[in-house]
Nucleic acid binder design. Structure first.
Lengths: 176, 176
DNA sequence: TGACAGCTACTCAAGTTTGAGTACAAATTT
DNA sequence: AAATTTGTACTCAAACTTGAGTAGCTGTCA
């Protein structure tokens, strides 16, 4: 269910890399924006999957750079996990939904301030995403990676519209 | 950063409960849809926060039901975390973004099938959410909890629109 | 009445994530 | 040329999540 494994396997499809390179590649694709790709997770994933035979350890041990190569079993597992990610509608785990659940625990003034602040941040984030898309990045990342930005912007916009509507209702006293 | 703590503290604001009741209450609010609230997480969170003085252990030990009561420190921590959740725009961690990143690794036929399948699932999910909202749930959950459904539906719709557009482009050969 | 399902309440091991820390090399500044 | 910063490559403990497992209790239905 975790996405870390697919990401690591996917990055290694085109050739062996070591942990640091895996991380850099994922950053290039913008994966740090929508996944947990801290160093710890990557090194853990590499070690675990090597143990399971999905990867093959290439370089030297501790200290030097250890490179990992994907095995046939690893390729099969990648495909299996990729399909799963396409077909499974896993509800988005969003900390903002948590905030929403307890909107009645804030004073009206705090609530309005929080909503306005969030709306402003969302507008900024959407604008940044649109600028990034216009800049065409293309610094080695495949073209279709732009699509993740596009989808992300669309979802941020949906959240912004919801906030703008909810803000009106809070001001009218209809919420919470 | 984790949402589990806010959810547990928030549920305990109105009176002591034991682990199983905490889970049921969260389910009632639909939190199982957008957060990690497996039993293990809840019992772990309760034990940890009791140790830290955010909760007070009430009932007996193992075997019987152990009830937990929120302390003053716990209420303060709840407010702190709630504010953080309102103000922080944490990029949504979405497994579907992972699927998207590797869209070029599927055969065109598999890709189209996956996209069509997903679109169908999204339409069903949106309809279900809308029905749930129409049914007015109100089985003890506060009214504003409907808002989480509404926001969720809006985000699902954004994803559906993206897929419908991308599907056209895949068929025209513009993607990936 | 006894057997079987289903609910309540919790435990535990294995896996995963976090985030700070280490260590050394290359580049840059003073 | 010494000092400082920046970048590369990795480690580790502590925290968190998962999911299967356990164990008692309450119907219920033949």
């Amino acid at each position: 269910m975790s996405s870390t494994r697919v990401l690591i396997l996917g990055v290694l499809l085109d050739g062996p890399l070591h942990g640091y390179e895996v991380r850099r590649r994922l950053e290039l694709w913008g994966a740090d924006q929508w996944a947990h790709v801290a160093f710890g997770s990557i090194y853990h994933g590499l070690a675990k999957m090597a143990e399971e035979g999905l990867l093959r350890r290439l370089g030297e041990g501790t200290g030097g750079r250890t490179r990992y190569e994907i095995t046939e079993a690893g390729r099969a597992e990648f495909m299996r996990l990729l399909m799963k990610h396409w077909w499974e509608i896993r509800p988005i785990v969003d900390p903002f939904q948590v905030a929403l659940t307890f909107m009645d625990r804030l004073s009206p003034a705090d609530l309005v301030a929080a909503m306005e602040g969030r709306a402003a941040q969302l507008r900024a984030a959407i604008e940044m995403t649109e600028r990034a898309m216009a800049a065409k990045r293309a610094h080695g990342a495949p073209r279709h990676v732009d699509e993740t930005l596009k989808l992300n912007a669309a979802q941020l916009k949906a959240q912004l519209e919801w906030i703008e509507d909810a803000l009106r209702r809070v001001e009218k006293g209809e919420l919470p």
